[in-house]
Design a binder for these strands. Structure first.
Length: 602
DNA sequence: GATCTGACTTGGAGTGAAAGAC
DNA sequence: GTCTTTCACTCCAAGTCAGATC
């Protein structure tokens, strides 16, 4: 914890200085020294709050609201059944949400269109409602063209205009983007209220296309300390409530209208409160490291239990541990996309193969996980797990739960008994971090810095694969790959030319033996070396990019990998930390950068 | 013990600015 | 200086999990 550490250091310096004037003895043996240090330690303890409170003082300026709706110019028309029609302001606003998404696949989906049309009609006047009865007869194309033109115009803005916008954003950030929490000025994560628009769920979401309504000050609950300067609502408006709850970390909240869930304004990851929580998370995972062998032995034992519920629990835990599956809470049917995690797996999501190719007892997983990302994996499991799975499948329909005697609450209660603070997701953190550490040990070569970074990315990638962090291949992937290949080809041609020149220079020197030809050889040798290095760099880049086509590294880097492992690795191999973490990441992981030395072990 | 609610973390996509290539 | 590519950053949806309530 940087501020406290600074405080201790400052106090120490103070004590030393003070004592050197008043008494020629070590400050640690003096009363004054102890008093000051005690004061510092009390403060340190105070800052960590043992009573469950998260802060003592919290002051902020409240959220920034979405800009009000600006009606379309008269020349931009909406057509119904081929005829121009002037819409009321509220109907027009919702129509523009649809028009802005016209190029997106979403707007072709039946559910999206149905939901949108239903909610749009609610915003219409009764007259509009009686005319507009069929979405297929609505023509939003002029609106859509208008927005495209606007966006194009934004891109074409002069440097000065862009600068002006930038300055305005900076001003807003300075005014609303920070808060004071317990003597620290902290960056707020999301100080802007989400603007109204159409809800875009992920995967087959039953609510896609519904109208996300505009949030007003009357919807907002403000949280701050009593003795702070309370944020003022915009003129003529009121907050829903101002509360002073220091058991939570959020600054403002509102309830969204699609799922009825609460949204929050919270601090940036670089803040003390988030950093400490993050650190705690990895410490819990490190505690798991110490007892994971015992837990594994226990669940293996439980595969033989007389009780079905215990066997199910043990097999599920094995999957969570081995495959880094998520816990899998139950979800309300029809409210969200149909996705599952470990505990909510259904019979239809696995297939059992007593023998497949040359492997025995293979389980094939195929299901949609978080964000409707497909999890597909074939893995050989222990015989006992396989037999148990066969047992769990008996007399069940495809849509039945695989683990019908288990849910996340039962599982987590069990885990809590095995280790304080242990939950299903700790296994994901633990396995991700330990994998990174092992892979780094295995892969790091004695090579150049780019080669070492490739090794790091490969280790990171191993984790991303374990956690199934996939992405859609970037739209320009093939093209940029081709460009890179062209560059490599070109470099290779350059290299052979340079080698030829070197050979000629050497021959020349052999014949003449003069200084000039000797120098020429040296120049040519250096040129070859330089081109070789450039070629190597390009090849490394190509390998890295190809391997990364469908893998997203960011999520694991940000959420699962103990940053101290990366910091230690950088220190050990002399890699600048900037090569691994960008500025934002360095801010988020400041605690780890301060804390870890080259010998840190997860 | 089932269900609901609230707080918080985790997640991929999209966007726009900066960096790099030409 | 201009065009292209990369990457930082925002956005906001979708999870996890604990505690309250029934």
């Amino acid at each position: 914890h940087k501020p406290c550490f600074c405080l201790i250091v400052c106090s120490f310096i103070y004590v030393c200085t003070f004592q050197s004037i008043t008494a020629p003895i070590s400050p640690f043996f003096s009363l004054t020294g102890w008093v000051v240090l005690l004061f510092v330690m009390i403060r340190w303890e105070e800052e960590r709050y043992t009573d469950g409170s998260k802060w003592r003082f919290l002051e902020h300026k409240g959220p920034v609201f979405a800009p009000p709706y600006e009606p379309l110019p008269d020349k931009v028309k909406f057509y119904y059944d081929g005829k121009p029609m002037k819409l009321s302001a509220s109907a027009e606003e919702v129509a523009t949400f649809f028009a802005k998404m016209l190029d997106h696949e979403y707007t072709t989906k039946d559910i999206f269109r149905k939901n949108f049309f239903k909610d749009w009609r609610k915003e219409m006047t009764s007259e509009e409602k009686s005319v507009i009865t069929d979405l297929n007869k609505c023509d939003f194309s002029e609106m859509s063209e208008y927005f495209k033109a606007q966006s194009e115009a934004r891109k074409q803005m002069s440097k000065e205009e862009k600068q002006k916008i930038k300055e305005e954003n900076e001003r807003l950030l300075q005014e609303y983007g920070f808060c004071i929490m317990d003597n620290h000025k902290e960056r707020i994560g999301n100080f802007r209220i989400e603007p109204p628009g159409l809800f875009r769920g992920r995967g087959d979401h039953p609510k896609m296309g519904m109208l996300k309504r505009r949030i007003r000050p009357e919807d907002i609950i403000i949280n701050c300390s009593k003795d702070s300067k309370h944020p003022k609502p915009p003129p003529g408006t009121k907050w829903k409530e101002v509360r002073h709850d220091n058991k939570v970390t959020w600054l403002a909240s509102w309830t969204e209208n699609i799922q009825g869930s609460i949204k929050y304004i919270m601090l940036n990851p670089s803040s003390r409160i988030k950093g400490e929580k993050d650190w705690q998370k990895y410490e819990t995972a490190r505690r798991l490291k110490k007892c994971v062998d015992r837990i594994r032995a226990q669940y293996r034992e439980d595969w033989k239990s007389k009780e079905m519920r215990i066997r199910q629990r043990a097999v599920a835990l094995y999957f969570i541990d081995k495959l880094a599956l998520r816990a899998g809470n139950e979800k309300e049917e029809g409210e969200t996309a149909d996705t599952v995690g470990c505990c909510s797996l259904r019979v239809e999501h696995i297939k059992l193969y007593p023998k497949l190719d040359d492997q025995e007892y293979v389980v094939e997983f195929d299901f949609l996980g978080k964000d409707s990302i497909r999890y597909y994996n074939k893995i050989p499991v222990e015989k006992r797990v396989f037999k148990n799975l066969q047992l769990f499948l008996e007399n069940k329909q495809p849509e039945d739960d695989l683990f019908d005697r288990l849910n996340t609450s039962i599982l987590n209660k069990h885990l809590q008994e095995l280790m304080d603070g242990l939950t299903a997701k700790v296994f994901r953190t633990y396995n991700a971090s330990i994998t990174l550490q092992q892979q780094l040990k295995e892969l790091t070569s004695d090579d150049s810095i780019p080669a070492k970074i490739l090794s790091y990315n490969r280790a990171n990638r191993a984790v991303a694969i374990l956690c199934n962090h996939q992405r859609a291949p970037p739209k320009t992937f093939e093209k940029s790959m081709q460009n890179l290949q062209n560059k490599i080809d070109e470099k290779q041609t350059q290299l052979s030319a340079a080698r030829k020149q070197l050979k000629a220079a050497k021959a020349d020197h052999k014949a003449s033996h003069d200084d000039k030809s000797k120098k020429a050889v040296e120049v040519k040798r250096k040129a070859v070396q330089r081109i070789e290095e450039q070629l190597m760099k390009l090849q490394v880049q190509a390998t890295d990019r190809e391997e990364n086509k469908q893998i997203a590294l960011g999520t694991s880097k940000l959420n699962y990998l103990d940053p101290r492992i990366s910091v230690a690795w950088c220190k050990k191999f002399g890699i600048p930390i900037e090569k691994i973490y960008n500025k934002t990441q360095r801010e988020k992981f400041a605690w780890a950068i301060d804390m870890a030395d080259k010998d840190y072990e997860f």
